[in-house]
Design a protein around this nucleic acid. Structure first.
Length: 880
RNA sequence: GGACGAAUAGCUCAGCUGGUUAGAGCGCCUGCCUUACACGCAGGAUGUCGGGGGUUCGAAUCCCUCUUCGUCCACCA
C-alpha cells in the first residue's frame, strides 16, 4: 500500500497556492450540472479602488464557508465574484494621483480621464483578485463581473429607461446634498451627520422703515447673504401686527419680508428665523409655500458665488462667516454668540462638509418601489439573520425619500438621456438615438452626468447573471439563496437590491440575508488607514495561513456583536490548524505495513461507538448552526470535537492499540482512526479548506477532492448513548485520578496502583472492566484491581465520583492534612448542592408545576449527589 | 428627540425560545520535551451574570425601571 507522509511542520505557504491552483484546474468552483435546487451567492462587490481589508476578510470567509458547505451538501453551487466601479471613490483616487503631478481631470479631458481611470481600475482589480485567491475564496472566476461591464451597463440603461417610462425617474431643480470637494450631488444616505461644536449667532435685522428690528438666531451667519425672508409663528403675539413689514437685510442691502409660518418653533431663540431657500431644506420648503426667491450664494466648489457682494466672492464659507460677523459688529447689528452643538453633514466618501445646494438633478421616486420591497419581507420572501435588522429595514422603507441618482462625475454610467438642442426634448433611450424622437433633429447631446454607483449595484444579483436577457444562468441561479454583508450597507445596498429585484424581476433577489459585524480593533475603533490600526488579511495569510484566517473569523463571528480583533487573535485558528495537521500526520505515520482493513472486517468497540456518537453529534450541531447562520457555533463544535474528543481521548486511547504487537489490533485501530479522520476532514473542509484538502490527498483511498466531496451526514444508526455515557464515566475516573496525581505532584512517570469500585448496578460496569487496560494506560497505573464501593483500603487515598470510587495507593506521597481540607470543601459544596435539590423537591409548588421529566431529573440528581455525599463523609471519617 | 444593541472570570466574548453545582479562548498558577503537536500534554485558581423591582415552583435567560457605553435614524434655525 502507498504511504505518504506529511511534513513535520505545518507550513501553509508550502501548499496553499498549489491547492488553490488544483481546485481551479479541476474547475471545482463552477456549479455542477446535477439536478436539484442550486445554491447561489453573489459577492458584495468590493470597490475596485481599494484593497481588501479585514472587513472583506470576514465577509468573504463567511461566504466561502457557507458556499463550500452547501456545495458539499450536493447543491449545484455558484458564488459570483466581481467588483464595483465605485464612482466617487475611484474618481477621487485618480484625481489625487493627478494632483501629485499638479494636474486636474480638466487638464486631461473627459475621454482621457476615463481611459486613465480604467487602467487604474485594472491595477487594483489584479490586486483584489489575487487577495481573494490567497484567502481561498471558492468563487467561479469564469463568471466574474464588473459593474461597468458592457452587460451590466446595458442593464443599467434598461432600468433607467423603464423607470423613466413608468414615471419613476424624473428630472428637477431641487435642493440636494452637494459635496464641494467632489463637486457633485450625493444621495441623502451618503451624508453622515457629525456633532460639531459651533456657535449660535444672534443678529438683528432692522425694519426698512426704521421702526426697530427683529432679532434672529443662526448657526450660519454667512447664509444671510441668501436670505429671502424672516419667519415667525403666526400665533406668536410678540410679532402681532409686524408680519408683512419689510426688513432691511444687512450687508446684502436687500429688503425682505417678515412672514408667518407654522413651522417656526416659538420656543427656539427669539422665535424668529431667517429664511434661506437655496441653502436649507426647511427654508426651501418654506420658500415654496411663500413664493420666495431662491438666491444661490455658492459656487460648485463651495466658495461664495456671484450673487453676493463683490468683497465676499470667492471666499470659503468659513472665512465669509468670520467677515460677516465682523461687519455686523461694526454695524451694531451683532448681538451675541453662544456655544452651540449641532449636526453637520459630511460626505460619506470625501469627508467634506456638505452644502445644501440648488441644482438640476435626476431622481428616482422611491415610494412605489419601497412598497414592493416591504411586501417581500411581510410575505416571508426574505429573512434577516439576525432578525432584528428587519426593524431597520422597515423603518427605512417607510420613511423613504426620493433618491438623487445623478452625479457630476466622469467615472460611471453616463445617463442615457439625449437632449435635443433644437426642441429641448429629452430622448431617454437604452442606445444612442440618431434623431430626436419629437422633432427629428439630429442635434442631440447626451447628459454629461453619470449615475450613482448604487444605481448599478442595486441590480447586482440579476445583472451579473445576464439580465435583462433571459439567460440560462438567470433562469437557473436567480433568485440567489443568501446575501452575506455587513450592517453598514443595509440602506445603500441591501434595501435597494430588494427594491430592484422586486421591480424588475418580480422576485426578491435573495432569500436569506445574513448581516454580519464590523471588524474593529481591540479598542473597538473602526479599522482605518488614517488610524493605522487596520489588519491586512494577506498579512495574516502570510503569517498564519488562510485557514487560520477563515477559521478564526468563523469562530469569532457571533451574531450581534462587532468583532474586536488584533493580529494575535489569529493564533486561535493557527493553533487549531496546527493541531489538525499534527494529528493527521501522526495517523499517517502509524499506518500499518499490512495495510488497512475493509469496513466489514471492523469490530466496533464501545470506545469506537463513543467517538462515532460524538462525531454524529458534531455533524448535527454543524448542520443546525449552518442552517441558522450561527458561524461561531460551528467553529466551537468543530474545535471541541476534533481537539477534545478525537485528539485528547480517541487518538490517545488508540496509542495503546497502535503499539500493540498484534497485527489485527494495529490494523483495526489504524483503519478506524483513518475513517474518523477522513470524515472529520470533510466536516471541517468548509472552514479549514486548504489544510483539509492537503491532508486528504495523502490519505489512502482518498476522495479526488474535498471541494465536491459529500459533507458528512447525520446517521442515527451509529448513535449509541450507552457507549457515550460509559465513556464519560471512564473519562471522569481518569480525570479524577489524574487530578489527584497533579494535586500531590506525583510525577507522571511514577506508576500508580489503583483499585476501582463501581456501583454494582451501573450499566457502564462491564465496559469499565473490559477496558481495564485502557484505564490503566490513561492514568499510568501499574496495576488496577477491583473492589466494592465503600471499602476501606489501608494505604490508599480515595477519589470519589458519582457512582464510582478510585483508591490510589500513594502512601507517603500524599499530604494527608491537605487532602482532608480539600475533602471538607468538596463535602461542603456537595452538601449545599444536595440541600438545594431537596429544597426544590420539598416545595409542593415545584412538584405540582414542573414537568415530570424535570422532577425526575432532580430526583436522580438527588440520589446520585446524596450517595456521593455519604461516601465522601465516610471517607473523611476514615481519614481520621 | 426617537430606535436598536451591549453590560457575564484579569482580557475578548458564547450562553437562542426560562430547569447545568454558569462556559470557551487568551492570560495567570503548578507539573511535564509521555515515541503527532511546547502552536503541545496533565492539572488548577478566578464570576453577589451592571443596579433595583416584578412575573414564575424555578431567571444570566421573560417584563418594568435606572445607570453606563455604543450604533443608527431625525430639518429644530
Amino acid at each position: 500500500m502507498s504511504r505518504e507522509e506529511l511534513p513535520k511542520v505545518y507550513a501553509p505557504k508550502d501548499f496553499e497556492d498549489r491547492i488553490y491552483e488544483f481546485w481551479l484546474q479541476n474547475r471545482l468552483f463552477e456549479p455542477s450540472s446535477a439536478a436539484g435546487e442550486p445554491f447561489t451567492v453573489v459577492i458584495p462587490p468590493p470597490n475596485v479602488t481599494g484593497v481588501l481589508h479585514m472587513g472583506h476578510g470576514l465577509n468573504n470567509s463567511l461566504q466561502d464557508a457557507l458556499v463550500r458547505y452547501w456545495r458539499m451538501k450536493g447543491r449545484p453551487t455558484l458564488w459570483v465574484p466581481g467588483t464595483d466601479h465605485a464612482g466617487i471613490a475611484t474618481q477621487q483616487v485618480v484625481e489625487r494621483r493627478l494632483a501629485k503631478e499638479g494636474k486636474t481631470r480638466h487638464d486631461l479631458g473627459r475621454e482621457k480621464f476615463v481611459e486613465l481611470t480604467w487602467s487604474v481600475k485594472n491595477e487594483h482589480h489584479a490586486v483584489i483578485s489575487r487577495q481573494l485567491r490567497k484567502i481561498g475564496a471558492s468563487v467561479d472566476w469564469s463568471r466574474e463581473r464588473f459593474t461597468m461591464d458592457e452587460g451590466l451597463s446595458r442593464a443599467v440603461r434598461e432600468v433607467f429607461v423603464r423607470l423613466y417610462e413608468k414615471g419613476l425617474v424624473y428630472k428637477g431643480y431641487y435642493l440636494v446634498n452637494w459635496d464641494p470637494e467632489a463637486q457633485t450631488a450625493i444621495a441623502d444616505d451618503e451624508v453622515e451627520y457629525k456633532e460639531v461644536n459651533g456657535f449660535l449667532y444672534h443678529i438683528r435685522y432692522p425694519f426698512a422703515d426704521g421702526s426697530g428690528s427683529v432679532q434672529i438666531a443662526t448657526t450660519r451667519p454667512e447664509t444671510l447673504l441668501g436670505d429671502s425672508a424672516v419667519a415667525v409663528h403666526p400665533d406668536d403675539e410678540r410679532y402681532q401686527g409686524l408680519v408683512g413689514k419689510l426688513l432691511k437685510l444687512p450687508i446684502a442691502d436687500r429688503e425682505i419680508p417678515l412672514i408667518a409660518d407654522g413651522f417656526v418653533d416659538r420656543e427656539f431663540g427669539t422665535g424668529a428665523v431667517k429664511i434661506t431657500p437655496a441653502h436649507d431644506p426647511n427654508d426651501f420648503e418654506a420658500g415654496h409655500r411663500h413664493n420666495l426667491p431662491q438666491i444661490n450664494i455658492l459656487n460648485p466648489d463651495g466658495t461664495l458665488g456671484p450673487n453676493v457682494p463683490e468683497r465676499y466672492r470667492g471666499l470659503t464659507t468659513v472665512k465669509a462667516r468670520k467677515l460677516i460677523v465682523e461687519e455686523l459688529t461694526e454695524l451694531g447689528l451683532f448681538v451675541a454668540q453662544e456655544p452651540h452643538k449641532h449636526q453637520v453633514g459630511h460626505g460619506y466618501r470625501s469627508g467634506a462638509v456638505i452644502e445644501p445646494y440648488l441644482s438640476e438633478q435626476w431622481f428616482v421616486r422611491m415610494k412605489p418601489l419601497a412598497e414592493k420591497a416591504l411586501d417581500a419581507l411581510h410575505q416571508g420572501e426574505i429573512r434577516f439573520y439576525p432578525q432584528r435588522w428587519e426593524h431597520t429595514y422597515v423603518h427605512w422603507m417607510e420613511t423613504i425619500r426620493d433618491w438623487c441618482i445623478s452625479r457630476q462625475l466622469w467615472w460611471g454610467h453616463q445617463i442615457p438621456v439625449w437632449t435635443c438642442q433644437a426642441c429641448q426634448h429629452d430622448n431617454v433611450k437604452t442606445e444612442a438615438p440618431q434623431k430626436c424622437e419629437k422633432c427629428g433633429s439630429s442635434d442631440l447631446v447626451q447628459d454629461t452626468d453619470v449615475l450613482d454607483t448604487w444605481f448599478s449595484s442595486w441590480l447586482w444579483p440579476f445583472s451579473t447573471l445576464g439580465w435583462p436577457d433571459k439567460t440560462p444562468d438567470l433562469e437557473r441561479f436567480y433568485p440567489t439563496s443568501a446575501l452575506v454583508t455587513a450592517y453598514d450597507i443595509i440602506f445603500f445596498w441591501v434595501a435597494r437590491m430588494i427594491m430592484a429585484g422586486k421591480e424588475f424581476t418580480g422576485k426578491a433577489p435573495f432569500r436569506d440575508i445574513y448581516i454580519h459585524q464590523l471588524v474593529r480593533d481591540k479598542q473597538g475603533r473602526k479599522m482605518s488607514k488614517s488610524l493605522g490600526n487596520g489588519i491586512d488579511p494577506l498579512e495574516i495569510v502570510d503569517e498564519f495561513g488562510a485557514d487560520a484566517l477563515k477559521f478564526t473569523l468563523v469562530y469569532m463571528s457571533a451574531q450581534g456583536q462587532d468583532i474586536l480583533l488584533d493580529k494575535e487573535g489569529f493564533r486561535l485558528g493557527s493553533k487549531f490548524a496546527n493541531k489538525v495537521w499534527n494529528a493527521s500526520r501522526y495517523l499517517l505515520m502509524n499506518l500499518p505495513d499490512e495495510g488497512l482493513l475493509d469496513p466489514e472486517q471492523l469490530k466496533w468497540t464501545t470506545v469506537d461507538r463513543w467517538i462515532l456518537t460524538r462525531l454524529n453529534t458534531a455533524i448535527r450541531a454543524v448542520d443546525e448552526a449552518m442552517a441558522s447562520y450561527k458561524f461561531n457555533d460551528v467553529g466551537h463544535v468543530i474545535y471541541e470535537f476534533f481537539w477534545n474528543d478525537f485528539c485528547d481521548w480517541y487518538i490517545e486511547a488508540s496509542k495503546r492499540d497502535l503499539s500493540s504487537d498484534k497485527v489485527d489490533q494495529r490494523r483495526q485501530a489504524a483503519t478506524k482512526l483513518l475513517m474518523v479522520l477522513e470524515e472529520s476532514l470533510r466536516l471541517m473542509h468548509p472552514f479549514l479548506s486548504f489544510l483539509t484538502e492537503e491532508i486528504s490527498q495523502k490519505l489512502p483511498r482518498h476522495a479526488p477532492n474535498l471541494v465536491t466531496a459529500p459533507f458528512p451526514v447525520v446517521d442515527t444508526q451509529r448513535e449509541d448513548q450507552a457507549s457515550a455515557h460509559a465513556m464519560q464515566v471512564l473519562q471522569e475516573i481518569v480525570s479524577g485520578v489524574r487530578a489527584l496525581r497533579s494535586e500531590f505532584t506525583i510525577p507522571a512517570e511514577k506508576e500508580l496502583k489503583v483499585s476501582l469500585a463501581v456501583n454494582p448496578d451501573a450499566p457502564e460496569r462491564s465496559f469499565l472492566h473490559e477496558e481495564e487496560s485502557l484505564i490503566r494506560f490513561f492514568m499510568n497505573a501499574e496495576s488496577l484491581s477491583w473492589t466494592e464501593m465503600g471499602t476501606k483500603l489501608p494505604g490508599a487515598v480515595k477519589v470519589i465520583g458519582t457512582g464510582w470510587e478510585a483508591h490510589v495507593f500513594v502512601k507517603g506521597m500524599v499530604d494527608v492534612p491537605k487532602e482532608r481540607e480539600k475533602l471538607k470543601k468538596t463535602i461542603e459544596k456537595t452538601r449545599k448542592y444536595v440541600q438545594s435539590i431537596e429544597a426544590k423537591l420539598a416545595n409542593s409548588a415545584f412538584t405540582a408545576n414542573a414537568p415530570a421529566e424535570v422532577i425526575q431529573a432532580e430526583r436522580t440528581k438527588r440520589e446520585e449527589a446524596s450517595s456521593t455525599l455519604l461516601r465522601l463523609e465516610a471517607y473523611l471519617a476514615d481519614l481520621g
